[in-house]
Write a protein that binds this DNA or RNA. Structure first.
Lengths: 130, 130
DNA sequence: TTCCCGTTTTAGACTTAGTCTAAACTCCAT
DNA sequence: ATGGAGTTTAGACTAAGTCTAAAACGGGAA
């Protein structure tokens, strides 16, 4: 709890009850929740929290680098609490997102692009449960 | 024109004026249009075409393998007329999507996943104009 | 050719994800 | 205590997408 407060302070985010609850839900998540999923979780402990606050807080946490916004599901943004580089595997049947450790794929040289400076990259795998 | 008709027939899609127009716009596109972008293009030649028809037709073309649906832009689905395997580079400033030839990146072995059979994959690069 | 019936198209209602706004609430510093 | 900056809130609004029910189309049988 105190750790969470400090984590927000360290990132220049003024801690409030609502922000702590959103951070708790999103950062502790084992998967890749959408904003509305975080809202649903947060409501159980913080029954008056509003959708706008959850959206604002997630955007704030992402902007401050505590979460990563990802485009991995059609039509929705998901938030990823895992900050270390990793890849993703999408279950083609369900859309579920699974983390793949960075080292389990070896990417060789990426040819220099004539017009772009590449800042980062990831592999998106798609697969089916065996 | 006749080629387009045959292409649809070959894929068991009954050609109609609207479908031909949607196919023309989407398949000839040099980029990765959204459904609403295709609608805007189609309207100039086919002024009464409806949004529902464009959405239905794009979904049909994707289902029949003439287009690929991709999740590369936040909140929207884009359609990709390039069927050969390739990667994508996203301009972090604008969100623009650029194709990257398959061979310009060498991906080594992908570790066998214990629970999933990997069907395909691609690299998503993010970068900034130099 | 005409008619029929399955297929397609259409407008518009509906849903879902997300942003925006303006008012209300907090809470710290005076 | 009070004033103001920063937060939260409900609800309006927008954009992407699906659904529905009715109208229009079109190709084959007669």
């Amino acid at each position: 709890m105190q750790d969470l407060i400090n984590m927000l302070r360290d990132h220049k985010i003024q801690p409030t009850a609502q922000r702590l609850e959103v951070a708790r839900c999103a950062l502790a998540s084992e998967d890749h929740p959408t904003a509305d999923e975080v809202l649903a979780m947060a409501l159980s402990r913080c029954p008056t929290i509003s959708r706008a606050t959850v959206y604002n807080t997630l955007n704030l946490l992402a902007e401050k680098g505590l979460l990563v916004r990802r485009t991995l599901r059609e039509g929705v943004t998901v938030f990823d609490p895992r900050l270390e580089a990793h890849h993703h595997l999408i279950d083609t049947e369900t859309g579920e997102i699974h983390d793949i450790p960075w080292d389990s794929v070896v990417v060789g040289d990426i040819a220099e692009h004539p017009e772009f400076e590449v800042l980062d990259y990831e592999i998106v795998l798609r697969g089916r449960r065996k």
